[in-house]
Design a protein around this nucleic acid. Sequence first.
DNA 1: CATATGTCCTGAGAGC
DNA 2: TGCTCTCAGGACATAT
Length: 276
Amino acid sequence: MPELPEVETMCRGVRPIVGGWIQRVIDPKCRYRPVVCQPAMTEIQRRLRGQQITGITRIGKRVVIETEKYALVLQPKMTGLVSIDNPPDSEHVRLVLELRDCTVPRLIFWDRRGLGTIGLIARHAIASELIEGKLGPDALAISPKEFQQQLATTRRPIKVVLLDQKRIAGIGNLYASEMLHAASIDPRRAAAELDATEFRELHRHMRRILLKAIRYEGSTLSDGTYRNALNQSGNYQNEHRVYDRADQRCPRCSQANITRIVQAQRSTFFCTHCQH
DNA sequence: CATATGTCCTGAGAGC
DNA sequence: TGCTCTCAGGACATAT
């Protein structure tokens, strides 16, 4: 499931398209239900034709492809990915940008389950449409002080609060469990109960883990869905300490097995012995 | 307002 | 072996 490190890796991988021109936008009309588009696909095709790509940015867990006039917003959600002419298969291709004057012939948005979305907005509206009132500070930009301020105002479990994109942007289910284990914090505790030292530790491990996961180009889970822009697996899955490791010995304390619980309909993995 | 629940979708894997 | 069932979770809509 693409979270901050996976989306950042996608953005870096497709950066070679910057400077290219969009010759044509193709709707591959795959056999699955059409991907959710805003506005309609035909309107996206009309507006993007002939635009030059000026930049690629990550906003939370979205890939934003900027042109002079527009921002094409690709939201991978569970199984989406952005690829340089190298999708895992052809049947789940949801959008193709044909490029010219570019070393890359095509940019592809691919999504197996089709929960992802495609949006097109005016470039000057990026902040008002995507950020303001919708997303908290990015997990890699937030200061330790701001981190505590954003999270400490609720009694909901800290694990659930870390997933709230309005409070902090970029963390998903996998990295939330990993960073809480690294910081030795019980995921069930009320966010407001953590003290300043614990928030500092959590912030430190959050940065460390997200940056390391980016270096490893993200996590490809057992279903093998996530790939980088060149259709290669990530490598961070081999570094997971708790995620999807229920009933295995805790790699830190060896005193208990990793436990799986459900919080807000999502799996959480943690060690009952060394997370307090 | 804050918080909780339901929904979208496909394919992998479990169980019989 | 082949069928049916469950589950994975990001973001948003709707309910409480």
